[in-house]
Each structure stands twice: as structure tokens, then as C-alpha cells.
């Protein structure tokens, strides 16, 4: 069965290691924070200028001066710090952030990503996405494998305006975990109960498939 958004977040949470500084994008990536193991130490960075981001505040304790990059009210955890936007992107460009998790509309087999613009339809801006994908060493994309019409978003070549080129390392979708290798997408894991054939037929790009493909471990 295809995963829901929370399951995708749970699977990605397993990639978060002890001691990591992590930047989470808007959407499914934000959910990842809910599923990181509680026996490891991780700090979440939000590009508007905070490290050590905590959960949403209790009702009545919202602070207008304390938000994340999605403009949601948040809290701080012990050890948190604030800084300005130039400094924030300095730590991103300088590769001090260990892992970036973000959403995408399309990803291609050479690691290109498109997630900021649909010409004629949606022009909201790239925010910090272009800086993040151009700079981060370790980028995981959380996305839906197919759109509502059932068309693949895992492509040979992106059709939408690009956010970055050759930068994505790993993709987790409702159907599969894919790694981007110099030779293209490699199928690493499949969603529980989803067949390799189903993944192949849902993917426009070629898939490298070696041996038995294990099921994702979600919980």
C-alpha cells in the first residue's frame, strides 16, 4: 500500500543521525521533526534565523517574534540561538548544516529538482530553496511519486523551471526510496505491499534494480 505523508516523514526520520543539524522545508519535511528518535540529539535550523527550534507553543503562549520559515509560531529548545538572514544562509552555503529535507514537484535522474514555479499557474517564489539545494551536501527530497492524474514526477528530465541542478541524493515517495547515482535512479526500498512492477510502471525515468528490493521499515 502506498504510504501517506506521515509515513513518508517517518521513513525520512530514520536518515536523521545523532549530532545532525537539519533544515526542514515546508510540507512533508516539517512532519519529520515529529518522528526523529528521542534518544539522539538533533538541532533543527530554520533559515529565517534560528537553530534549536522546538515544537509549536501551547495555546496562549504564541510569540509573534518567534516563527519558523513557514511563518508558523514555534518555541525554542535549550541550546537554541538566533541570527540574521545573511548569517543563516552563510551557515547553509558554508555546509555547516548536515542535512536538508525538502519537497519537490519534479526530480530528474541526474539529481535536478524543480519545486518553485509552475509557469502561468503558480509564481510564489523560491524562498530559500535555491540556496539550500545549491549548497547542501546531503539533500533528501520528500515528494509524491505521481501527481493526481497518475503521472510520474520522477523523470528523465524535469519539465518545470529548475530550482537546482545535480543536487538531490535521495528521494522518498509514497511508493519507494530512490538513490540518485551517476547512472540514474536506483531503487533501494519499496513501500510495504507495493510491487517493484508497480513502481516501474509509476516511474517515467529508468530504474536501476539490483537483486531483491526490501520493503521500507516505517515504525
Amino acid at each position: 500500500m502506498a504510504l501517506d505523508k506521515n509515513d513518508i516523514a517517518k521513513r525520512i526520520a530514520k536518515e536523521v543521525k545523532d549530532g545532525y543539524y537539519v533544515n526542514l522545508g515546508i510540507g512533508i519535511p516539517t512532519l519529520v521533526a515529529n518522528y526523529v528518535r528521542t534518544d539522539i540529539f538533533v538541532e533543527f535550523q530554520s533559515e529565517n534565523g534560528i537553530l534549536g527550534m522546538g515544537p509549536f507553543p501551547f495555546e496562549g503562549e504564541e510569540d509573534a517574534d518567534l516563527i519558523n520559515a513557514g511563518k508558523q509560531t514555534i518555541t525554542t529548545l535549550p541550546g537554541a540561538s538566533f541570527f540574521d538572514s545573511a548569517f543563516s544562509f552563510g551557515m547553509i552555503r558554508g555546509q555547516h548544516v548536515d542535512l536538508t529535507i525538502l519537497g519537490a514537484m519534479e526530480v530528474s535522474e541526474n539529481g535536478d529538482i524543480a519545486n518553485w514555479k509552475i509557469p502561468g499557474k503558480m509564481v510564489k517564489g523560491m524562498g530559500g530553496a535555491m540556496d539550500l539545494v545549491a549548497s547542501a551536501d546531503n539533500i533528501i527530497v520528500a515528494m509524491m511519486h505521481v501527481n493526481k492524474a497518475g503521472e510520474s514526477k520522477i523523470l528523465k528530465k524535469c519539465t518545470l523551471p529548475l530550482t537546482g541542478v545535480g543536487c538531490v541524493k535521495k528521494v522518498v515517495t509514497e511508493l519507494a526510496v530512490l538513490e540518485i547515482t551517476p547512472n540514474g535512479f536506483k531503487l533501494l526500498e519499496r513501500a510495504p505491499g507495493v510491487s517493484v512492477d508497480h513502481i516501474i510502471s509509476s516511474t517515467e525515468a529508468e530504474l536501476i534494480i539490483e537483486g531483491e528490493i526490501p520493503e521500507m521499515v516505517i515504525d
Binding site: 501551547f58 516563527i67 511563518k71
Partner: peptide, 12 residues
């Protein structure tokens, strides 16, 4: 006024 754009909270 310090308006909040996305008021997000959690239950106690």
C-alpha cells in the same frame, strides 16, 4: 500590532 501570520499551537 505584531500580527501573527500562521498561529500554530499544540494542546496541553
Amino acid at each position: 500590532e505584531k500580527r501573527i501570520e500562521q498561529r500554530t499551537t499544540r494542546k496541553r
